[in-house]
Design a protein around this nucleic acid. Structure first.
Length: 566
DNA sequence: TGCGGCTATTG
DNA sequence: CACAATAGCCGCAG
């Protein structure tokens, strides 16, 4: 039996789960070292509900797999990504930043130790240079219980430094809040990976079959089916002109089209779409492309690789990847073709609560730029309606103009609407323009919530040449969009974290940039939907640091299948 | 075998 | 066909 009575309610407790023991070290100084990790964790969680401090999602996954779903955490790797940008968060880098060192100077792990090697003391985690001992960074802290305790103490040290650093971050007063929600998102990713997304396998197979036929019996059968699909395109050509045509090679498709009198710059679907009437082979190619996509990416192989015996679709989740810190997922979880979505179905006796944020990016722009006029427009469920009225244009024109402004669009016929935007919402437009200008010059940016968007390490700047100007303009669009998309991602994760905390026993099973899918017992459907909506208001308070200036809206529905409308 | 180009899907 | 992502196949360089 372990004793959690020495810990204080809600305090930060660092945890390191080693091979010969687990260490819990509280901010108050209370410490538990135990060989029964999960009894201790469960005990402490229910007794004092701490903010668990761990080095990375690995530990979160160990919690989840042991059936423990803690309320609060602090993920050093996730917070490191917030402070430093990018996707890396290994202990060596996290520690180097805490000590103000260049992570590139950290020594590599020793390969072959010879007579002349100076062996660092394996019991000391920090080298004379201040860098983390490479063996510790690689996991040697697991092997010895004293080292495991030391590893937890180091985590607590880094956590304090990260929190102080975020609290001092000028112009980003909500950065500490962001650190907590980013940590929660990382924990949520561990849960998403463990739980998976419920899938109706029979329905999935039925849909796949409509594109590429029944499941092939063997490799030869699969080759035969492939050849038959190819044939349905090639039969439109004469025996001579079909020689050497490879439908999987765009250049070959281009020459195929030339043989039937169709000249195109490239063979993208939207271009071919316009030439449908020119020759029946165009239709055949477009059908072939759709089937080929299912066959290669979302077919029986995909099903076998990513759907478990429990009929759950699983992929790898990242809480903040890429430019602006959006969540990403593999295994098709973020780009599943609409045709396959009817296969995502709640289990028997369960329903989904599906919730979509409405017009999240322009609402976020209104909030982060502090544009009172644009913020006023967010009072409407459809904020493009008042914007269109203000600009004196059709709703669709207003929408394209606003999106174009956020993406940095330079072409198109929205020039007049663009000038009206500058007049009506100068504060928001200035926010975007300043972000673009700074990014063009290669200056790093930070999102509203404090995430660093690195512009300084993305290659040569260049300005004098055409190519240099093109690259600078691309950087400008990238930076301009990153501040909106990144802040939207932070808001979404805040919402997801609040939902997660409020919906037990329901579970979030999918996060998709502005959409949540929650799996819940059928009798709790409407209760859960209500909690998801209420969480939006709560998230807005958290994300703004207490004073929401814009209204956020969600469309929420209780459905059986993902494809069912909100 | 690794990488850039092309293509598809999604928000 | 702007901004972001994952992922497949092809051709080509090493």
């Amino acid at each position: 039996m372990t004793s959690s009575s020495n810990f204080e309610h809600g305090e930060a407790i660092a945890i390191a789960i080693g091979g010969s023991g687990t260490a819990l070290v509280g901010r108050s100084g209370a410490t538990i070292v135990t060989s029964d990790a999960f009894a201790a964790i469960g005990d402490v969680e229910s007794a004092v509900s701490p903010r668990w401090v761990w080095w990375s999602k690995e530990t979160a996954t160990e919690f989840v797999r042991s059936g423990i779903r803690p309320l609060r955490c602090w993920d050093l790797a996730a917070v490191h990504r917030l402070l430093e940008g990018g996707w890396r968060g290994d202990p060596g880098r996290v520690w180097a930043l805490r000590r103000g060192l260049d992570p590139g100077d950290a020594p590599p792990r020793r390969g072959n130790v010879d007579l002349f090697t100076v062996v660092d003391d394996p019991d000391r985690p920090v080298l004379g240079t201040g860098h983390l001992h490479p063996e510790w960074a690689h996991g040697s802290w697991r092997g010895d219980v004293d080292r495991t305790r030391r590893w937890a103490e180091l985590a607590l040290d880094v956590q304090r430094w990260q929190a102080e650093t975020l609290a001092r971050l000028a112009d980003h007063p909500t950065a500490l809040t962001t650190a907590r929600s980013e940590s929660a998102a990382e924990l949520l990713c561990a849960e998403l990976e463990t739980d998976g997304l419920p899938l109706d396998r029979a329905e999935a197979e039925r849909i796949i079959a409509t594109f590429i036929g029944d499941r092939p019996l063997d490799a030869a059968d699969e080759r035969r089916a492939t050849a038959e699909r190819d044939e349905r395109v090639l039969l439109h050509l004469g025996a001579a002109s079909r020689e050497g045509i490879d439908l999987r090679n765009p250049a070959s498709v281009k020459s195929l089209l030339r043989r039937v009198g169709i000249e195109v710059d490239d063979t993208r679907a939207w271009r071919l779409e316009r030439r449908r009437g020119d020759h029946p082979i165009v239709d055949a190619i477009l059908d072939w492309r759709r089937a080929e996509r299912i066959a290669t990416t979302f077919g029986y192989r995909w099903l076998d690789q990513h759907v478990g015996d429990d009929d759950r679709l699983r992929g790898t989740w990242s809480a903040s990847d890429g430019a602006a810190g959006r969540m990403t997922a593999t295994a098709g979880l973020h780009n599943l073709p609409a045709e396959l979505r009817p296969a995502i179905a709640a289990e028997a006796g369960h329903v989904f609560v599906r919730a979509d944020l409405g017009q999240i990016e322009p609402r976020i722009l209104a909030a982060v730029s502090g544009d009172a006029a644009l913020a006023a427009a967010t009072a409407q469920h459809d904020m493009y309606a008042p914007v269109a009225a203000e600009l004196g244009v059709e709703r669709e024109v207003a929408k394209v103009a606003v999106l174009g402004a956020m993406y940095g669009q330079t072409t198109g016929h929205g020039a007049a609407a663009r000038r009206e935007l500058e007049r009506a919402y100068p504060v928001a437009m200035d926010y975007l323009t300043r972000a673009a200008r700074r990014a063009e010059g290669g200056n790093d940016l930070r999102t509203h919530g404090g995430r660093l968007v690195r512009m300084s390490t993305s290659g040569p700047l260049g300005a004098g040449t055409d190519e240099g100007r093109t690259r600078a303009a691309a950087r400008g669009r990238y930076g301009r969009n990153a501040l909106v998309q990144g802040a939207a991602a932070e808001f979404f994760k805040t919402w997801a974290a609040v939902v997660r905390a409020r919906i037990a026993p329901a579970q979030i099973v999918l996060c998709l940039h502005d959409e949540l899918l929650v799996h819940t017992p059928a009798h709790l459907g409407s209760v859960t939907a209500g909690a998801v909506d209420a969480a939006l208001t709560e998230a807005a308070v958290h994300w703004t640091g207490g004073r929401p200036t814009v209204r956020f809206v969600a469309d929420t529905a209780v459905v059986d299948r993902w494809s069912d409308a909100c």
